Computed example of a mutant assay.
Amino acid sequence: MAGEAIVYVIDDDDSARHSLEFLLDCARIRVRSFVSADAFLAASPPLAGACVVTDVRMPGRSGVELVEELRRRGAAVPVIVITGHADVPLAIQAMKAGVADFIEKPFDDAVMLAAIRNALARQAGDDQAQAEHQAVLERIASLSPREREVMDGLVAGEANKAIAFDLGISARTVEVYRANVMMKMHAKTLSELVRMVTLARLS
């Protein structure tokens, strides 16, 4: 969990905030805290590889309202909401808002750490997938129009001769374009090329 992972703790209760900071320090997870949701939003800290742990009831914006605001801003960061109140409607509202987890005070340290580690692991996977997707889009953009036509034929399952016929070029020329496509797309096999292009088109 070392490296870029960071947890943002948001709680107006000093003792609760410091307790979580200590817990995360001991677990060797980077942590930064804020006294309110508004202070967190105003600071706009980087969210890549991050997880937010927020109290649900705070002066100003509540934890659930924070989640809703992050979603409005398109921030796909996992949020764990903690509360000292056995408030079922609030829990339902939080889950509908898209929280990663909902934990009631007083919570067990092991339960909290497990929830945080799960959220960070999911976030790391999402960030990696997004980076890979962006890389594929950039590779496709680097292709010439003719290379892209050949790639489309390959992904559609057409043989070199069929692609050559469709484009009015020789099969040998198709082979040259095919080699360029594979190199530019960083694809070792045709199935790898198909997978990359298919995933790029799905989004």
Rank of each mutant, 00 (worst) to 15 (best):
M1V: 14
T54Y: 03
P89K: 10
L137F: 04
V81P: 02
F165M: 02
R32C: 11
V174C: 02
M151F: 05
M58I: 08
A171N: 01
M182H: 06
A2V: 10
L47P: 00
K188W: 03
S203C: 05
M183T: 06
Q93E: 14
C26Q: 11
D11E: 03
A131T: 10
A129Q: 12
A200Q: 04
G49D: 07
A2I: 08
I116E: 04
I6Q: 12
R178W: 00
L113P: 02
A124G: 07
S44E: 12
C51Y: 12
R32M: 13
A2T: 15
I82K: 12
A124M: 07
E138F: 04
G98A: 10
R72L: 13
G74N: 10
A100T: 11
A141R: 15
A159M: 10
K161E: 07
G157M: 01
E158M: 00
A129D: 12
I82N: 05
A119R: 15
G125R: 15
E69C: 07
V176G: 05
I29F: 11
A48I: 06
A200I: 04
E192G: 00
C51Q: 09
D55R: 14
G74L: 06
S15C: 08
V56W: 01
K96N: 15
K184A: 11
S203Y: 07
S170K: 06
T83I: 09
P145I: 14
N118M: 08
P89N: 14
D13Q: 13
I169L: 12
V9M: 06
V67S: 10
V81R: 05
D12Y: 14
E68K: 14
V79A: 01
V64L: 14
